[in-house]
């Protein structure tokens, strides 16, 4: 095998995995706290890509010249507005169904997903949207003997660092803050959390906001990296991020991050050495395999079954 191609696919896989991980976090946190798959989460991510492009255009129109300033502003605005979408979805589509059977919120989620896709299709058009490349340039990665084994664009470096930073921040919040403790308590025993004075409706809303914020980071990063997107990107990426969450162990935060990286690497190597056309099929095959062989995932707890 060619060392250059392997190196390059590993780099691409890590970048892809960082994106999957960021989105997978939203699936896993919502599942952990409500025992429900938020199928609209992929579309929240899709919306964030549009929002990022819109804010970028607005800021450029407003005369913001400096790329770093524009990026920070776009990131902040995208997170804020995407979080608002996440919050709204929970408030409108899930909270009224809180005490119904398990199927109802699932159907509601699929409904929300369709609504969001068509809302974007009607308001933004069905055509592919794009943004110009903002960050140019790359660095070469050399092996010890001086042979180049791959190249990393500055955008890719930005993606991986931003993903690490935001996941680190989220993990820190969950581990060390009062909010994080309340989230974990609500996840483990919702009624007991209420008895202790925790407003679990607020906690659930906050979890949707945090998940959407992470998806927003992913949406902006993907927009920067690939430059193009349409109203349907949430579907495939959503299922892959969901696969990553299941692979890592649904409900587990480190699991989502690990699952994202593993899936990204596998997919990248598969398309580099086997076949590009079937890379999505490959990802779904991984999902099925995990569900059959180890449904609790790599870092999940086998006994997790929400009531």
């Amino acid at each position: 095998m060619n060392g250059y191609i392997v190196g390059q696919q590993v780099i691409n896989g890590l970048v892809l995995g960082a994106i999957y991980g960021l989105i997978a976090v939203g699936y896993t946190m919502v599942y952990g706290i409500m025992g429900m798959i938020n199928f609209a989460h992929g579309d929240i991510y899709m919306i964030s890509a549009y929002l990022a492009a819109i804010f970028l255009a607005l800021l450029t129109g407003a005369g913001v010249q400096s790329v770093p300033v524009a990026l920070v502003l776009v990131l902040a605005l995208t997170i804020l507005f995407t979080a608002f979408y996440g919050w709204t979805v929970e408030r409108v589509a899930y909270r009224p169904l809180r005490n119904s059977n398990r199927l109802a919120p699932l159907i509601s989620a699929i409904g929300v997903s369709l609504i969001l896709q068509n809302y974007v299709r009607i308001s933004q058009g069905a055509r592919n949207q794009g943004i110009p490349a903002l960050i140019e340039g790359h660095v070469r990665v050399n092996a010890a003997d001086g042979v180049t084994i791959g190249q990393v664009t500055y955008t890719q470096i930005l993606i991986v660092s931003a993903a690490l930073l935001s996941m680190g921040a989220l993990a820190w919040i969950m581990r060390h803050t009062t909010l994080g403790r309340s989230c974990r308590a609500t996840q483990q025993d919702r009624v007991m959390a209420e008895l202790l004075g925790i407003n679990t409706d607020h906690i659930i809303a906050t979890v949707f906001i945090m998940g959407a914020a992470m998806a927003a980071v992913a949406g902006l990063l993907v927009t920067l990296n690939y430059g193009s997107f349409d109203f349907f990107i949430g579907f495939v990426v959503g299922i892959k991020a969901f696969t990553a969450a299941v692979l890592g162990g649904i409900g587990s935060l480190p699991g989502a991050m690990l699952g994202g990286v593993i899936l990204g690497l596998c997919e990248s190597l598969f398309s580099g050495f086997v076949n590009t056309d079937y890379k999505d099929v490959f990802a779904f095959a991984v999902l099925i395999l995990v569900l059959v062989v180890r449904p609790s995932g790599l870092l999940g707890h086998p006994e997790v079954e929400k009531v």
Binding site: R181, D189, A193
Partner: peptide
């Protein structure tokens, strides 16, 4: 429910309902 605890009532419920995945100290802090 969550407002009732703030009145000054605390419950040790049936089956204890501690948070098993958290440390003893975290349970207490909650």
């Amino acid at each position: 429910t969550h407002r009732i605890a703030r009145l000054g009532i605390a419950q040790v419920p049936e089956g204890r309902r501690i948070f098993p995945a958290m440390t003893v100290e975290e349970n207490l802090i909650l």
